[in-house]
Computed example of a mutant assay.
Amino acid sequence: MPIIRRQVDAEGWDAVSPYGYGGPIFSEATSSDFIDEALRAIVGRLRETGCISWFIRLHPLLNADWQSSVGEVIEQGMTVSIDLTKTEEEHWRETRSNHRRNIVKAVRAGVTVHIDRDFVALPTFIRLYKETMRRLGAEPSYFFDERYYHELVSEAGPNLRLFVAKEAGEIIGAMLLSVAWEAGVIQYHLVGTDQRYQHRYPSKVIVQAARNWGRDRGLKRLHLGGGVGGSSADSLFNFKRGFSPDTHVFKTQRVVVHPERYVRLCDGDESVLSDLKGYFPAYRRDIAGALDDGVEETLAASEACSR
């Protein structure tokens, strides 16, 4: 289970899942008792090294039946996925009518999608993503430095796909997805579009292309994620639901690793230990200059350009 270590003060730090759905991975035969025993061992080790709290984003697909007595597991909202075992006809039938119209219109206008295996278009994708985030007024935490993208390609290149949409040779949108080959899951990661070509709906055309690509390769699911802040009522979630009726519950797990230090950071308010459903960790709300990592909810704003 991957974590990011964030310094709280000179004495301690807290742990948070990386961006996305970095939930725990375990073999199918693993019992719930063993999982809890393992989690308690991790918590003990984290406490020894100065950790105060631990925020875990569970994967809606891989951790669908997740239960744990460690900390508190909370339902945050819904996500959408596409069942890639269905036929092309079934997929097209499940696609909302306005999505179908927009895709057909774009294709007739000459919009094409290809996979950039050598990541030649990565600089353009980075620019489009940044422009899209600025256009949406996204928080600073939704921007990544250049090193992030290049290290992602370097470390996970065989498991990444950069889908690029073009019209008349011009890149009008691009989407970065990851592929878990053994699990058969494609994960929508980041997308950027050129504002001048919004009338071509590049995000819709790319999702259609990714869906076809995954189905042709025998993969099982294309996970599109959820709405902004885990909402199932916003326009981003509505956009994704236009491709599939399949939804999944997104959960987070909140663990107070060091209760005494947690209470102390919350001005001695012991009530924070009895209800972990609100902003977590509670002390992050009041730490001046704290990293706004959005741990209260699932981070979906980087996908908001699909609206």
Rank of each mutant, 00 (worst) to 15 (best):
P140A: 08
G226L: 06
E270N: 08
M1K: 08
G268H: 04
D116N: 02
I52M: 07
D116R: 00
F163C: 05
R261W: 08
I4S: 13
R254N: 13
L62K: 08
W181R: 14
D292Q: 14
D65I: 00
L136M: 06
N102Q: 15
R93M: 12
N98T: 15
P60I: 08
V257H: 07
L39A: 10
F26D: 00
E155H: 13
G44L: 00
S154W: 11
K166D: 15
Y129E: 05
R93E: 15
Y148S: 04
D275M: 09
E131L: 10
A210V: 07
A41E: 11
D9Q: 06
H189W: 11
D9C: 01
T79W: 04
E90Q: 15
F119L: 05
I206K: 04
Y129G: 03
D293F: 13
R45D: 15
H59G: 00
D36K: 01
E151Q: 14
K105H: 10
D292W: 12
V111H: 00
G44Q: 01
A138Y: 08
V185H: 06
E155C: 10
L299S: 13
T298I: 14
A106I: 01
A168W: 00
A183I: 03
D269L: 07
N98E: 14
V256L: 00
V153H: 01
G268E: 09
L46S: 03
I186L: 14
L190H: 14
P202V: 02
Q195D: 15
R100N: 09
Y142W: 10
K204I: 06
F237M: 02
D275Q: 09
L276P: 11
V228Y: 03
R117M: 11
Y142C: 12
E167M: 12
V295M: 13
L152G: 08
L62T: 05
K220A: 13
L273A: 07
T112N: 07
D145C: 10
R57V: 06
P123W: 05
F143T: 01
F26W: 10
S141C: 11
G23E: 09
K105N: 10
Y149F: 15
A210F: 09
L273E: 07
R196E: 15
R161I: 04
A109N: 13
E90K: 12
A168F: 07
S271P: 02
E37N: 02
S306R: 13
V104N: 14
M133F: 01
G77T: 09
S244H: 04
I115D: 00
P2I: 11
A168Q: 14
L152Y: 00
E94K: 12
G44R: 01
G268T: 06
P259R: 06
I56C: 09
W92Y: 04
A282F: 11
A210S: 08
D234K: 04
I186M: 12
D275V: 01
D269I: 03
G71N: 01
H150Q: 11
W92N: 12
I171V: 11
A210M: 08
A288F: 05
S81R: 09
G225F: 05
F243N: 02
A304S: 14
E146N: 12
Q198A: 10
G77Q: 09
L84M: 04
A288E: 15
V80Y: 01
G226M: 05
M78Q: 15
F243R: 07
G22S: 12
R147S: 12
K240V: 02
L136G: 10
L265N: 09
Q208G: 00
T95E: 09
G22H: 11
R217P: 05
W92A: 13
Q253V: 01
E297D: 14
R40E: 04
